[in-house]
Amino acid sequence: MISKLRAMFKDENFLKFIHWVENIVSKVLSIALIIVIFIAVVELIILLFKDLFITEPVGFFGKTLIEIFGLFLNILIALELLENITAYLRKHIVQVELVVVTALIAIARKIIIFDTTKYEKEDLMSLAVASLALSISYFLIRFMNQKYSQK
């Protein structure tokens, strides 16, 4: 029994086990995210239908367009997260470029739906700094990827 336990904890076997767990968790996350995306799309369609055809005045949005754009961007962010997981399942590496793009979309969403009555100007400035930092990171990652792909 001790020899089986030792064999199980050998580096190669243990790494295979970790790889198996990572795959299972990634697949479960993918399925959960697909469910979330479908629910978000259905909610968006219901909201649009109600705002356009049921709520008075008919043909106008009861919610502001900014809130509706925020819902669209939520779905886009979820799709980007799904792409991150899918890329991980394909190559078994976290693609930093995809993660930075997802973060940029999330920051852009926050800036688009930013409510000046709820937040201070410092909050908007911090979003701008985060956006600038992510943009620079994205530029550097793209530059390095192009540099290494040419070799």
Rank of each mutant, 00 (worst) to 15 (best):
I45A: 12
E43L: 12
V99E: 01
E12C: 07
L104S: 03
E56Q: 06
V28K: 00
K10V: 09
H19V: 08
A128G: 05
I39K: 10
I141V: 14
A40G: 11
K16D: 15
E43A: 06
F61M: 13
F72E: 08
L132R: 00
E120D: 15
E67K: 00
D123K: 00
L47Y: 02
F72D: 06
L15T: 09
Y119W: 14
D11A: 06
M8Y: 15
L33H: 09
K16F: 11
L65I: 11
A106Y: 00
N74L: 13
E56P: 10
I35T: 13
E22G: 00
L104H: 01
Y148R: 10
N23H: 07
S3G: 08
M1T: 13
L82P: 12
A103I: 04
S137I: 07
E97A: 07
D115K: 01
L44S: 06
I39V: 13
A78E: 14
A78Q: 08
L73V: 04
K91A: 10
T116V: 11
L79P: 11
N145F: 11
A130F: 02
S137K: 01
E43F: 06
L29Y: 03
L33F: 11
K4L: 14
T116A: 14
K16T: 13
N23A: 12
V41Y: 08
D11Y: 06
L5F: 12
D123T: 05
E43S: 09
R90F: 08
F60P: 04
I2K: 07
Y138F: 10
F72R: 01
T117S: 14
L71P: 03
T64W: 01
I105A: 04
V101F: 04
I141P: 06
V36R: 02
R142H: 12
V42A: 15
E12S: 12
F38E: 12
L71G: 05
H92Q: 15
K27H: 04
N145I: 11
H19A: 15
V25Q: 05
S131A: 12
F143N: 12
T55R: 03
S30W: 02
E56I: 07
I24C: 09
T86A: 13
L44N: 08
I45V: 15
K4P: 09
K16N: 14
V100M: 03
R142V: 14
V129K: 01
A108E: 04
E56L: 13
I111V: 11
L48A: 04
F38S: 14
L48C: 05
F139K: 02
I18M: 11
L124M: 15
L33R: 05
V21W: 04
I24H: 02
L140E: 13
I113P: 03
I66N: 07
L15F: 09
D115Q: 07
E67R: 00
I39E: 11
E120G: 13
I34N: 12
I112G: 02
